[in-house]
Write a protein that binds this DNA or RNA. Sequence first.
DNA 1: GCCACCGGTGGC
DNA 2: GCCACCGGTGGC
Length: 149
Amino acid sequence: MEKKSQQSKRQSTNGITLVDIWSVQCGECFKWRLIPTEEEFEEIRSKFTKDPFVCSKKPGVSCDDPADIERDDTRTWVIHKPGIPKTPSGFKRRLVMRKDFSKMDCYYDAANGKRLRASTDVLKFLDKFPKFKNDVSLADFSFTGPKIM
DNA sequence: GCCACCGGTGGC
DNA sequence: GCCACCGGTGGC
C-alpha cells in the first residue's frame, strides 16, 4: 500500500489524548516532515493522491536534510486516508481515540452545536437546517478515522 | 474481515 | 435529560 499522510498522538499527563504532531511522508525519500498546523495538514491530505508530498514543498527543505521525526514507540502513530476533504469552515472535525486505542471516532461539530457522527447525520442535518446547503454538501464530509498503527 | 453506522447507557 | 463513549452488526 502506498505511503500516506500521517499524524501522531500521545497521551498527556491528565489522561486526555492530544494530537501534538502532524507529519507527512515524502514520496521520494520517505522521510517524515512535520507540518505545523492542522489546516496545512488537511490541505496536503486532501490532495495527497493527485499531488504527493515531497520534502521540497517545505520552504528551505530538501530530501538531503535529515528527517524531522522518526517513527518510534514514544507516541502513538495513526495513519490517515488520503483524499479526505478539507473541513468546511464553520465545522470542527474531531477525532476521538477510544480508551483501548482500538480505533478513532470521527465527528463534525456544526456551528449551531449539532454533532454529526455519520454521513446519514449530514443529510438529516441539511434537511433540518437548509440554510447550510449554501455552504456545504455531503461531499465535504468524510467520517473515516485514521488507523492506529 | 473490515468499517460505517447507530443504539444503548452510565455518569454527570 | 443530555451526551460522550462504546459495542454490536449489517453490508460490503
